[in-house]
Design a protein around this nucleic acid. Structure first.
Lengths: 261, 261
DNA sequence: CGCCGTGTTGACTATTCTCAACCCAGGTGG
DNA sequence: CCACCTGGGTTGAGAATAGTCAACACGGCG
């Protein structure tokens, strides 16, 4: 099996054989974990880093009143909290969604890797920055989009991410998330999440049976959810000439055009 | 003026004189920027890193339909997107909230700094991780808390952060955010944000006049908003014996207690 | 066989939004 | 010096999105 981390980082840079081997060696002793099992708890000390090899996991937090918010999904190739060992304690939990195989990477291994392979170090920074960008986009998702848009946006994102590690077949991919989990992701109730899924189906935008999702009309789904994949930063490092900014302008004055002095 | 970055990082490690000087030198040529001015736009190339010296700034995104979501506030001592230059294009905007003084730091300066000062490198990783944790908590905030709790939670967080850089006086601090901005932060409308502020005032929890906020009953405010400051990771590196986990347990099985093999 | 997790549906409720007005302070220009 | 304009804050009334509660269907598994 090819280490999906290599595949993922290759979205950013071409890695020479030597770097690939270093990354492959991370996944030497994979460990199988059942579905719905915590890899790390909130409050735990922060020793290892988990690399997802197969299956899905998620990052979540439970509030004192019992509500759960899922703050991230991890798919193959994703590292959970690359540098978390700089902190003392986990402030959130990581749990599996499906049966999963993971590689546990020691803190020192991560440090050595980035010390010795500058290209990998840079690629790992890229992946950290993309993870942050995804979390930010989730703030936008729950903060600004209505229920239907939220669900649609999540589907678009997961499709692009899964495709980026070669796990989509055309417009179909495994989407192993229960409606309860979807609800805890989008900040909706299960009942309402269910109705939104129905609506997406009725509109002919998706099909979701078993745990298999097929996007039937990508363009309309993207439009509806205002999905702009730029935050996933899948363009490769040093790719052609920089493109023009595509987002709408800001609401603010521009410091460069109107210096404040 | 003492560089507030030194003050901020000192929450994590004690920095020797040499390291402090290196950090001080970052703020050699401060630049004044007017309120409500963009420092960087979405789509811009990613050259510099901004260090906030005085005033508040924010990170935000505008959706195609014109809605704005504020995804972060920056207060003195905060670095906006430390490693953003690893990416090619900004996927969000950074704008000032108040009149601000900033230092612009070149990408290479950041790289040199972390190459030569391992303690600073580690402290900057800490600050990156805390920034991420804050964004995650914001997902929780907009996803799970109701309107009153959201506003209260933000107030608690900003109080602790501002206090951590020595800018609070007792339970009072400058809170220069308009209700419109507060609304774009919490995913509410201005009208409703206004009513929530009234409610917090009426309950005797806060006083907010001009741009000055005073917390009148911290305990109840914390309780109401389910604020748990652990995600700000303000305990110092290597502090005493690790404390017991305080969060509630997860919803999942525990991989360590119930191995899946 | 029966239980449990998951998905689905209906009827009612409530939190939050929308729209619209109005107030007030500060700054600007006539 | 005053009139006006603008940004920010406040309030009320009605509308709508999403939540609550409750029941049921369905399939897998002990």
């Amino acid at each position: 099996m090819i280490n999906p981390l290599v595949r993922k980082l290759s979205n950013y840079v071409d890695l020479p054989e030597e770097d690939r081997e270093a990354l492959e060696s991370l996944a030497k002793s994979p460990k199988a974990v059942a579905a719905h099992t915590d890899l790390i708890h909130e409050g735990d000390p922060t020793d290892g880093v988990y690399l997802i090899l197969t299956g899905w996991a998620c990052r979540y937090k439970i509030l004192p009143d019992g509500q759960r918010q899922i703050m991230a999904y991890f798919v193959p190739g994703d590292l959970c909290d690359q540098r978390i060992f700089v902190l003392r304690r986990m402030d959130h939990c990581i749990g599996t969604v499906t049966p999963t195989t993971v590689a546990v990477i020691a803190a020192q291994t991560m440090i050595d890797l980035t010390d010795h392979y500058p290209r990998i170090a840079r690629a790992l920074w890229w992946s950290t920055l993309v993870d942050e960008a995804i979390t930010r986009e989730w703030v936008v998702n729950v903060g600004q989009r209505d229920a239907l848009e939220r669900v649609a946006h999540l589907i678009c994102e997961m499709f692009v991410r899964v495709r980026a590690v070669g796990l989509a077949e055309g417009l179909s991919f495994d989407f192993p998330v229960t409606q309860t989990e979807l609800a805890d992701t989008t900040g909706l109730t299960t009942v309402h999440t269910n109705r939104m899924l129905q609506e997406l189906r009725a509109a002919g935008l998706i099909s979701l049976k078993g745990r298999r999702l097929t996007i039937l009309d990508l363009e309309r789904l993207v439009d509806l959810s205002m999905f702009n994949p730029n935050y996933l930063h899948l363009e490769r490092e040093g790719d052609g000439p920089a493109r023009e900014p595509h987002g709408p302008g800001g609401h603010h004055r521009d410091a460069n055009r109107r210096p404040s002095t």
